[in-house]
């Protein structure tokens, strides 16, 4: 196991170094300049501004400087949006709302999805099962931004139950974005748990439990549910990806001051250091989630470890 984890971490570092390098050089060949109203500046003024941000140095120097900074957690300074503020600080200051809606969406979606999937499996081929399948298909198919704008229009604008946008009413502001983000995990968990439960319910040890006179609830929760839950860990990775992708648009729609909204804004004004910082931050987050998921799965289900160790 230790070897497997070590190997995975080495891969992770290589991947991150590649992403950082790749992002760095992409930013350099990008059209447009991060310096506000660059066209209006005289060449001399421009040189002064570029010198202030170290943009006048040779490319390899800038690159190694950036990579060494990265090792120390320094993502550089923002050029036009926050006038010299540390990118790390900008990202950290915006993490709160993003983490909150992401976490709430994940928990809400997974819990409801598990319930839905369980009910569907226990009442297989009844209307309960069919409607759960319909919900799951819709949840997987409808993009989060369509769902978010539907929620905003109906529950926010027309019915006025929740704030339409902005981050001013504490928890209430987070309700609609969290629901919008919860749809994908909900649908994925529901489908997954249903399949797993049906398989587990047909296994020999469930028949044995029935033969020994265990009650329906006991079988469902104590025997079937626990075993169906383990493989759910494998879809946590894709779910986290979906939540992160969704957060870019959902934060935009609900005007939430989070990382996603910041990222989209930086793209619009080509604030290269923020784009690079956020890209690396997102990559670290996603790669870590997938690594943790794989390790967890190996610990919980020893059968996986064998094949995982070799591959």
């Amino acid at each position: 196991m230790a070897r497997y984890i070590g190997k995975r971490i080495i891969y992770m570092v290589i991947t991150l170094a590649l992403i950082a390098t790749f992002t760095f050089f992409l930013m350099k060949i990008l059209p447009g300049s991060p310096i506000a109203s660059a066209d209006k500046l005289s060449p001399e003024q421009r040189a002064v501004v570029e010198a202030r941000y170290g943009l006048d140095r040779p490319l390899p120097v800038q690159y190694f400087d950036y990579m060494f900074g990265l090792l120390q957690g320094d993502l550089g300074v923002s050029i036009n949006q926050f006038k010299g503020a540390d990118v790390t600080d900008v990202i950290l200051s915006r993490m709160g709302p993003s983490a909150q809606i992401g976490f709430q969406g994940m928990v809400l979606g997974t819990v409801l999805g598990i319930l839905l999937g369980m009910v569907a499996a226990l009442r297989q081929n009844t209307w309960v099962d069919y409607s759960s399948t319909v919900v799951a298909i819709i949840g997987i198919s409808i993009p989060s931004f369509v769902f978010a704008s539907m929620l905003q229009y109906s529950l926010g604008l027309k019915l006025g139950w929740f704030p339409v946008a902005l981050w001013k009413d504490g928890f209430m502001s987070s309700v609609l974005p969290s629901i919008a983000l919860a749809m994908f995990p909900l649908a994925t968990a529901a489908r997954f748990i249903r399949t797993e439960m049906i398989e587990v319910l047909g296994s020999d040890y469930i028949t044995l439990a029935k033969a020994k006179g265990a009650s329906g609830a006991e079988i469902a929760f104590k025997h079937a549910f626990r075993n169906a839950l383990i493989p759910l860990i494998t879809v946590l990775g894709p779910m986290a990806v979906a939540i992160l992708t969704g957060s870019l648009v959902v934060e935009q729609i609900f005007a939430i001051p989070g990382i996603g909204e910041q990222f989209v804004k930086s793209i619009m004004v080509s604030d290269f250091s923020i784009i690079m910082g956020t890209t690396i931050f997102f990559s670290v987050f996603l790669i870590l989630v997938i690594l943790i998921v794989d390790i967890l799965y190996g610990i919980i289900d020893p059968r996986i470890r064998l094949s995982g160790g070799k591959g």
């Binding site: 991947t15 890209t279 997102f282 990559s283 996603l286 790669i287």
Partner: peptide, 13 residues
Amino acid sequence: ILTGIPNLVVVIL
């Protein structure tokens, strides 16, 4: 290594 890079990031860049 390629699959390690989040799709979202590559597409946007």
